[in-house]
């Protein structure tokens, strides 16, 4: 291992203040832990666009005025919002996933991994929250402005695309950023179905090393840092999209 002297100095210093990072000098556990960080970052990078796109589709369905689109989405949003994500994840993995396995003739043929189920469940859960935020934004667009657009000859889809969504997105951005911050934290539910994100990897390490506090400090700093970045990006986008002379 290169940098081993720096690493060893670090381990010795931490040991002096009572924190145990000895496992970093071993190959195996250090790799598990590093991969845990990468898996979490990978989950976040995937989940943010998945939740935003699905949220947009849900919001469009909810405000479409067509019951065959809005009713199923409304039902899904209610179930998703009102039940624990952990339970949804276990239900999806233990029931839906088994169902899929039976359909394709055995678990060995099932292409759906635990990682997939975390992305699907957390992504759609946050999408439901995005959809409600965007719906509020869409409904806040004055009806007279929508009528004016209709009077010019815009179709319902064009009004959504060019008038309602640009305004709704600006209005709902603070709520959406809040949801994204929640999303970052929610990736940790993956450990319930053995997705080796950072908390799962940490549990693997601390059950052997009994260094819970040492790892916990790193986990908390890690998530705080990501969410400070997410919140900062949100403010940056908000400023970027601000409309002069308009309240948003």
């Amino acid at each position: 291992m290169q940098d081993s002297s720096i690493l060893n100095t670090f381990i010795a210093m931490m040991d002096r203040i009572g924190l145990n990072y000895e496992f970093l000098a071993t190959g195996y556990e250090a790799t598990i832990w590093r991969d845990g960080f990468i898996t979490t970052l990978y989950l976040i990078a995937l989940l943010i666009p998945v939740s935003l796109v699905a949220g947009l589709v849900f919001a469009a369905c909810l405000t479409s005025g067509r019951p065959f689109l809005s009713a199923p989405v409304r039902g899904f949003v209610e179930i998703t919002r009102n039940t624990p994500t952990l339970v949804q994840l276990m239900f999806s993995f233990l029931v839906l996933n088994t169902f899929v396995s039976n359909l394709v003739g055995g678990a060995q043929n099932n292409p759906l991994t635990p990682f997939f189920w975390v992305v699907a469940v957390v992504g759609l859960h946050i999408a439901a929250l995005h959809a409600e935020a965007m719906r509020a934004g869409i409904e806040a667009v004055p009806s007279s402005m929508v009528e004016a657009a209709r009077g010019m000859g815009f179709s319902q889809w064009q009004i959504l695309r060019h008038v309602e969504l640009p305004l709704a997105f600006r209005a709902s951005l603070p709520a959406i950023v809040n949801n994204l911050i929640n999303l970052v934290k929610l990736t940790t539910v993956g450990n319930a179905i053995a997705v080796s994100e950072i908390t799962y990897a940490s549990i693997m390490v601390w059950t052997q090393r009994d260094n819970v506090v040492s790892l916990m400090i790193v986990i908390l700093v890690f998530f705080s840092a990501i969410n400070i970045v997410v919140a900062r990006l949100g403010i940056w986008v908000e400023r970027k999209l601000a409309v002069p002379g308009y309240g948003l």
């Binding site: 179709s155 060019h162 305004l167 308009y246």
Partner: peptide, 24 residues
């Protein structure tokens, strides 16, 4: 049909009391 009404609206301009410009 809404599509037929859109064809008509393309040919008939309308201006409202509240201007309704797109603020963004």
């Amino acid at each position: 049909k809404e599509s037929e009404r859109i064809e008509l609206r393309k040919r008939v301009g309308i201006v409202f009391q509240q201007y309704n410009l797109f603020p963004h």
